[in-house]
Amino acid sequence: MTSDQHDHSHCLSMFQKLSEYIDNELDEMTCRDIERHVEECVPCKICLETLKRTVNLCKKLESKPVPESVSLKLKEFIQSMSDGRSIVQK
């Protein structure tokens, strides 16, 4: 199918469900329906693949380490709270 023959109503209904498809949150029949559609519809296939890639890039983003100064400050802060609570308990 070329982009000129793009059936917008069908594509729009697919377009709304692409994230749920990527997340495996759709029933099997709807999944097969989407898979059949993207086999024939290049714009929707592009849409699905680029969205899938976007999600995977987000999931692969690395965490940053906590700066040592922040960690130390937090440790002292927690220590002062714990000490306060222990004194109250005693």
Binding site: I46, E49, K52, R53, L57, C58, L61
Partner: peptide, 26 residues
């Protein structure tokens, strides 16, 4: 509308995800 899936959605993730792209996403 392009006529094929763009390269950035096809090449291996580890080849694609560099510091600049990570910052763009953030």
């Amino acid at each position: 509308i392009p006529d094929a899936v763009p390269e950035w959605a096809q090449i291996p993730l580890n080849k694609l995800l560099n510091v600049e792209l990570s910052n763009t996403i953030r």
